[in-house]
């Protein structure tokens, strides 16, 4: 009961669960109300069998593996490039003013527009898809790293100067760690943008993948499978975000 130490925790989880049940309930009610054509807007009771069907036929596993590979590889490449490059842009004015400005412009280009260029450079295989995901993940990480390095608290920089640190020591002991909370925020956004890019990438040259399945099912008017695909992507995005925040809490409790 309320005196129990876990009461607040249990109550908070109960709120989440009740809310989700409400959302699913409303969804199902809308579906059954025939307010929208049921064929175009299947409810949970119609999507679930489609999901089971996809799981049983092995389609789901295949799509999941294909998308995971593209997402994880691209995400790692984008992040690993974005952080140091952003920090450098933040600290070195002439790089920020040249390449930084160009990237800033490029960052607002929708990923879908990049598909023809990605095909031109990387062909139709996995390289093109991974590169698109990396492209999508890069920008928020790059931007947040740059902003963080640009706005390192003045007093911290002064402490570094008082310590007579070398540029490398300053980067390692002051600029990089003080940027981490911003970078964490950037990475959380990158989790979404990488997923957008994955969707764009799977629009062409793909045979499997969660986003490909959504597009294909849509093409075939199989809205139940389409919704199932969207549902899986939603759950996975949530899980990745959750796992990432848990990891941050464990590795850098001060960064959240």
């Amino acid at each position: 009961m309320w005196w129990h130490p876990n009461f607040v925790k249990v109550r908070d989880h109960a709120i989440t669960v009740l809310f989700l049940m409400g959302v699913f309930g409303a969804w199902e009610w809308l579906y059954r109300s025939n307010l929208y054509p049921p064929h175009l807007f299947p409810g949970p009771s119609a999507v679930w069998p489609a999901l089971v069907e996809m799981a049983k036929s092995g389609e789901l596993a295949q799509d999941f593996l294909a998308s995971s590979f593209r997402w994880i590889t691209g995400f790692i490449i984008g992040t690993v490039l974005g952080v140091p490059f952003g920090m450098i842009c933040g600290r070195l004015k002439f790089i920020r003013m040249s390449i930084g400005g160009l990237l800033n412009g490029l960052s607002s280009i929708p990923k879908i527009v990049m598909i023809p260029i990605a095909i031109l450079w990387f062909g139709l295989g996995e390289t093109q898809k991974v590169s698109l995901v990396a492209w999508g993940a890069f920008f928020p990480v790059w931007l947040s790293s740059m902003e963080a390095a640009l706005h390192t608290p003045r007093e911290l920089v002064w402490v570094a100067r008082s310590y007579n640190l070398t540029p490398l020591q300053s980067a390692l002991h002051i600029f990089w760690p003080s940027a981490i909370p911003h970078i964490v925020a950037g990475i959380r956004i990158a989790i979404s943008t990488a997923t957008f890019s994955l969707a764009a990438a799977e629009m062409s040259g793909a045979f499997s993948g969660l986003a490909y399945r959504v597009f294909y099912s849509h093409e075939m008017f199989q809205t139940d499978k389409m919704m199932a695909g969207i549902f899986v992507i939603t759950v996975l995005s949530w899980l990745v975000n959750y796992a990432f925040m848990k990891l941050v809490k464990y590795l850098a409790p001060w960064a959240t």
Partner: peptide, 11 residues
Amino acid sequence: TVFQSDNLFFW
């Protein structure tokens, strides 16, 4: 220098 604002290494 010791500042008024909180300038510890928060990490």
